[in-house]
Design a binder for these strands. Structure first.
Lengths: 156, 156
DNA sequence: ATCAATCGTTGACATTTTCAACTATACGTA
DNA sequence: TACGTATAGTTGAAAATGTCAACGATTGAT
């Protein structure tokens, strides 16, 4: 078989299963887009020795909201013990700092250092490019609409 | 503090971090909705001893498309070895059957048994309820729009 | 002063992911 | 025809992630 014929067959064969009813299932669509998106995002962030997870923590640490680790766990849908590991690593790299909570000394707030802010500024550019790659099939209006719908589904 | 005041504070505190710029990030929104959706879906499917993964395989096996395991792996974004485990388990439960590929005897196609189809019919009802729970904040038009945008992002 | 609850942390355990072999089969080319 | 390369499914090991229960420190209501 020639290379061209192979490519054609692959293209014909590759998305054959889209016809199955599971392609109507939101859970499946979310999983699939999330899976392919993660690959693109992590590849873009690797340049800064970050992954989606640590990038998320860094953004929140840099947000000025002074989140506690518990809040990070809730918001990122992660176990508190996973937050410990993520913050440990970012703190070791001097990108964030832990501080005791002001009202509650049990809690620790996580804030970005200036080094963390600077790295984040660079990483955010790469992340934006990755996002537009993931949503390449959508125009700007559609991409905005998708985001709005996801936000509404999450927070009403 | 009274219970009511606690609840208020929790409500005020719970989504405090939505203000952070990461809430604009599609990757994050997908991850979060997917995470909460998985919990709901898996809870709904547990009644049938299925999880999202095995449910997906069962749907595709029941689609009439006679997918090969390789196609399942590609379509579900899973490693081929994970498909082996999923099909093994469904086959042990007599919900699907493996058959050698017609043109290619290396490949094995996976098709649902009638027992599998019957179970799927029940499970699909539960899955639909789970989905409407996940998308409770969206009206029907918005839910359809969300699905359409996800499909377009994936397959153009 | 006491008591239940919460925060971060640790460590154990289970599940999932990733990857490198291996066998059997397919298919182009000599 | 025989040969070489590529691919499908399978196995098993290693790495990464997820889950959970315990613990000390602290909080806040009684």
């Amino acid at each position: 078989m020639t290379i061209e014929a192979q490519d054609e067959q692959q293209a014909a064969t590759k998305d054959r299963l889209v016809a199955a009813p599971i392609s109507q299932d939101v859970g499946f669509l979310l999983a699939k887009l999330h899976a392919s998106g993660s690959v693109v995002n992590n590849r873009a962030l690797a340049e800064f020795d970050l992954k989606e997870r640590s990038y998320s923590v860094l953004i929140l640490a840099d947000s000025g909201l002074e989140p506690t680790q518990r809040e990070l766990a809730d918001f990122l849908s992660l176990d508190p013990s996973q937050i410990v590991a993520l913050v440990d690593e970012l703190e070791k790299r001097k990108l964030v700092a832990r501080a005791p909570g002001k009202q509650d000394r049990r809690a620790k707030t996580v804030t970005a250092t200036s080094k963390g802010s600077q790295l984040l500024a660079q990483a955010a550019i790469a992340a934006r490019h990755a996002e537009s790659e993931v949503l390449a099939a959508l125009d700007d209006r559609e991409a905005a609409q998708l985001k709005a719908l996801l936000r509404k589904a999450l927070w009403g």
